[in-house]
């Protein structure tokens, strides 16, 4: 199928290979430069005071206490809402759904929901949770919005984890005269748990960084207090970053950089936990 000068063809092959490698490493280098830039910019502001102060008009006094605590509240409630519902949906689709047309429909629907821009979820949250259910701009409203946003991710990864549980285990359990829920609870869920946890952590780490939906539901108001209950107003780390980054002054950009370092550290830690869980289970299998 191919003719011509072999020497030249080998040269092309080598060049192509070098090109692909260069491009890959160059883009990784670009990202490394960007990350180095943000750390460098933010480093000066990163101290205990930054973590324990409220935002302020004066850069020297500004901190991320309310944002950090707000993110903590937000993520805890998001996990509380989305994990049980997402795992339950995955169990239904993998273990219970009999009518394949219905489950196929739900499946396509979930796949499409995963691609809906996050700002649309923000509008949904604003109209449904903030206004219709009159939850206001509270932690609960934010968490519910976030939950809808990450549910598709949780469902999809949990389904994969459940599907990876060998069918022979289910068969063995059923052959003992047990019901489906007994089989799921005692065998399927424990075996799928590491995979589910990994997916949940990755989904939550996505929720930590999501900004647009929170902007939409109005979390961008000035909040210089720590929420004390789920119905309190809140701000969050990415919101604080957006706020600082959209100001013209250089100092605020550096504050944004410092907050980004904190945000990325939190996300990196969560990812590391997910990787460790995955690694552990791969080894014990």
């Amino acid at each position: 199928m191919i003719s011509g000068n072999l020497e030249k063809r080998h040269k092309i092959a080598r060049a192509f290979r070098v090109l692909c490698a260069t491009v890959t490493w160059a883009s990784i280098a670009v990202l490394a430069v960007l990350l180095a830039h943000v750390s460098f910019e933010g480093f000066r502001w990163l101290d205990l005071g930054f973590l324990t102060s409220f935002p302020s008009r004066f850069p020297e006094q500004a901190g991320i206490k309310s944002a950090l605590m707000g993110t903590l509240w937000l993520i805890s409630f998001t996990a509380l809402f989305s994990v049980p519902v997402g795992v339950a949906a995955a169990i239904y689709l993998e273990e219970y759904a009999e009518d394949s047309r219905v489950s196929r429909f739900i499946e396509v629907n979930i796949a499409n929901l995963a691609g809906v821009p996050s700002i649309v979820y923000g509008i949904l949250g604003l109209v449904i949770f903030v206004r219709f259910f009159a939850l206001g701009r509270s932690v609960v409203a934010g968490s519910l919005t976030m939950s809808l946003l990450i549910l598709p991710v949780i469902i999809i990864t949990a389904r994969e984890a459940i599907r990876a549980v060998p069918g022979s285990i289910r068969q063995a359990a059923f052959a003992l005269g047990t019901t489906r829920w007994q089989v799921v609870r005692a065998h399927v869920l424990p075996s799928a748990l590491p995979g589910i946890m990994t997916g949940v952590i990755l989904a939550l780490s996505r929720a930590i960084g999501e900004t647009a939906p929170l902007v939409m539901i109005g979390a961008l108001t000035y909040v210089a207090f720590v929420p004390e209950g789920p119905m309190d107003a809140f701000t969050a780390l990415p919101i604080q970053i957006f706020n600082w980054a959209s100001r013209p002054q250089q100092e605020f950009h550096q504050l944004a950089a410092a907050a980004i370092v904190v945000l990325l550290t939190v996300m990196l830690l969560m990812n590391a936990i997910a990787v460790i869980i995955r690694h552990r289970t791969e080894r014990t299998r």
């Binding site: 960007l34 830039h37 943000v38 910019e41 990755l202 780490s205 996505r206 930590i208 960084g209 999501e210 900004t211 647009a212 990415p238 970053i241 957006f242 980054a245 950009h253 944004a256 950089a257 980004i260 945000l263 990325l264 996300m267 990812n271």
Partner: peptide, 15 residues
């Protein structure tokens, strides 16, 4: 893939 988009916004304006 998981880096938040607001961070990329910061990269854009500051770098």
């Amino acid at each position: 893939v998981g880096i938040p988009t607001v961070v990329y916004g910061y990269f854009a304006i500051s770098f």
